[in-house]
């Protein structure tokens, strides 16, 4: 459902998952994608990693209340399933910090208000080490685009439109709907691809 809650900052415990190329099949295996609602995916999130290793970060009690995930490079690669974002949010995560994210995952995250922050590999590794050695609580300020704690202080790049949407509780589709007139006009005036699309349904 469309989320309409304005958010200005995220403060919370960090969970370290420094594995590169976490794919969407790992986040939520396809066998759980037959559900047609947006909930019920969290219980299956990372199921294969949880099962393979009892010490896996999400099996540890100390991280159960974590709100921020510190992850490896190219997080969310693979399929377009938005269920991956829903599953992670259902686990209680509001932000992920990683060196890079896959494109479709990143788009899906924006539309659901899951904050993705790109920081250097070194910084992510330091944060992960800290989160493992002792409890790391980070504070993410979305208006100034800063991540801070007692030991860390990093500015990050934030897409200005996403920043506007999340801090105002506004949704991308509203912006599109405001431009319906222009969209319709373009579809009749521009190179008309519909001209070339015959209705093949009857054939």
């Amino acid at each position: 459902m469309y989320k309409k809650i304005a958010k200005h900052n995220i403060q919370g415990l960090c969970a370290p998952m420094m594995i590169d190329d976490i794919d969407t099949d790992i986040i939520i295996p396809a066998q759980h994608l037959t559900q047609t609602s947006q909930s019920g995916f969290g219980q299956h999130a990372f199921a294969r990693l949880k099962k393979a290793n009892t010490d896996f970060v999400l099996n540890q009690k100390r991280y159960q209340a974590a709100k921020i995930l510190i992850a490896g490079d190219n997080f969310g690669c693979g399929s377009s399933r938005e269920h991956a974002v829903w599953a992670i949010q259902e686990l209680g995560f509001e932000a992920i910090i990683a060196p890079s994210f896959a494109d479709i995952f990143s788009n899906n995250a924006k539309k659901n208000g899951l904050v993705l922050i790109e920081l250097s590999t070194d910084t992510c590794q330091q944060m992960a080490q800290f989160a493992e050695a002792e409890n790391l609580y980070l504070s993410i300020d979305l208006a100034t685009a800063n991540v801070t704690s007692k030991h860390f202080n990093h500015a990050f790049n934030i897409n200005p439109f996403f920043q506007y949407c999340i801090t105002h509780g506004s949704n991308e589709v509203d912006y599109l709907l405001q431009h319906m007139g222009q969209i319709k006009a373009h579809k009749t005036a521009a190179v008309n691809h519909s001209l070339f699309i015959q209705n093949g349904a009857s054939q």
Partner: peptide, 19 residues
């Protein structure tokens, strides 16, 4: 290109996306 479910809703409603 592949899109997520929210973006598909945008296409349903408007025939356009933000990118």
């Amino acid at each position: 290109f592949g899109i997520g479910t929210s973006t598909l809703a945008h296409v349903f409603a408007t025939g356009a996306i933000l990118m």
